[in-house]
Nucleic acid binder design. Sequence first.
DNA 1: AGGTATTCACATGAAACTATTCTCTGAGTTAGG
DNA 2: TAACTCAGAGAATAGTTTCATGTGAATACCTGT
Length: 411
Amino acid sequence: MEQKELEEFSEKKDNLMKFFKDFLAKESLFKNKEVLQIKYIPDSIIHRSKQIENLASILAPALRREKPSNLFCYGKTGSGKTLCTIHTLNKLQTIAKEKQISLKTAYLNCKLKKIADTEYRVVAQLAGAIGTEVPITGLPTGEVYNIFLKKLDEKKQIIIIVLDEIDQLVNKIGDGVLYTLTRINPELKNAQVTLVGISNDVRFIENVDPRVKSSLGEEEIIFPPYNALELREILQSRAKLAFREGVITEGVLEKCSAYAALEHGDARRAIELLRVAGEIAEREHSLRIEEKHIDIAEAKIERLRILEIIETQPKQSQLVMCAILLILENKEGRIETGEVFEKYTELCKKQGTNILTQRRVSDLISELDTLGLINAKVISKGRYGRTREIYLTISKDILDKVKETLKKHLY
DNA sequence: AGGTATTCACATGAAACTATTCTCTGAGTTAGG
DNA sequence: TAACTCAGAGAATAGTTTCATGTGAATACCTGT
């Protein structure tokens, strides 16, 4: 984010010096911007005391050198799962240190590509977390397990492993790793391992090996989404720390939380919205954040999100998107798979790219649908067959930007 | 009129294929003893 | 001689293709009144 801003700034090179001077001279709206960062962990977490209590009581036996039960947390994005878990673990860790209990925690976000998305990498990361670095590549997976186990079992200790976004991991590489991890304890003489799984997807646990399921799901904690009121209070507490007094005008927080409440009560989004709104207000030399800034911020975030998605799509997918846009240029309303495929073929020929089969294009279209760029619904037109009805969900004012990015990436 | 059959235009699944990336082994290299 | 590096074989993976089968309802076709 910061980088992009800087780039934008650099366009006005002539008065750059002046700008920076002004920037320093001016008082920032922010008192402490860090508070609005996603990774920030507040000292007190509101509206989650029940879950934290629950977490604490499940994990507390670690302080008596007993193995806590395995634990599974689920709730939608931005419902505080990760936050609460890390918070609780931090506290636990602090006390353990005071009492000289050997307790280690390892947090692993399985979503991160190239870091923890294969069996090898997961185990390597875990080994890293408990203090043995393992080469990034070159060893047999089994060997890494052995190193890991050996290090684990070195002394009497409790180890709590947190696997965040565990559903992504299982989707990608199956539940083999989980199975091994849940069965790790009998192999250890000294150490004991507790697993904490965090997942966005409630149904995820259903499609997992029943043995893993019963073992991992010894305890479950559910994180319901925040409602607008709770979001508002969360925002309030953060805003108090983040902004100077009087910066926030009436109704701003309400609006922010209302926006986020629409998105299944995603607190992360609400906070990001507030931060971006703050940045926008600041750049406008406004002395306070007003409701309109929230609207602008919302549009900006949405735009960035869409552009980011489009940019990171593979070429073929971009081509399909391009085809859809081109068709819609000369035609209002809805279009069908067949048309898209035709246009897509044409585009490919023009570009000299190889043409994918209709089968694949059909899949690509439904992928674009899941990404939220288009809306593709299967409908039956009776005698005239079955197809997907496609229309855009992107608002018109970003469309030009989208086309621009597509062009840039395709030529 | 009412009911059944057909038919369209893809959707959806499964399996097979392919190119790329990862994992793993062993030969070769290096450095320290 | 132990530790390290690195090329290349083999395995795993992601992205596709091929082949096969499925789908929902507008229309065509009957059927008996």
